[in-house]
């Protein structure tokens, strides 16, 4: 049986605003954000949040996101 990952926080990425600059990938201390592999309507490869991550809602991704596409929530 798979052990449950205790999540303390999560983010929501607006796929349509994302321009795939990958700056959040670099700055995320938990490496929780990766390429979604799908193209949005503007033609960019958007970012996606991995569900099994150890996100603690530090908010760094949202601070650096140039498109204001990320919103951060803490449980």
């Amino acid at each position: 049986m798979k052990a449950k990952v205790k999540m303390k926080g999560y983010i929501e990425i607006n796929q349509e605003s994302c321009k795939g600059c990958q700056i959040c990938f670099y700055f995320c201390p938990k490496s929780s954000i990766s390429d979604s592999g799908s193209i949005n309507s503007s033609g960019y490869f958007s970012a996606c949040f991995s569900d099994n991550s150890e996100c603690n809602a530090c908010g760094i991704c949202a601070i650096v996101c140039p498109e204001a596409a990320i919103e951060v929530y803490r449980e």
Partner: peptide, 19 residues
């Protein structure tokens, strides 16, 4: 909510380049 899109930022896509 830890971080929300600023209220004064209009809901539209920026025309700026990525990054």
């Amino acid at each position: 909510t830890v971080y929300k899109r600023p209220k004064l930022l209009k809901e539209r896509l920026f025309h700026y380049c990525p990054g």
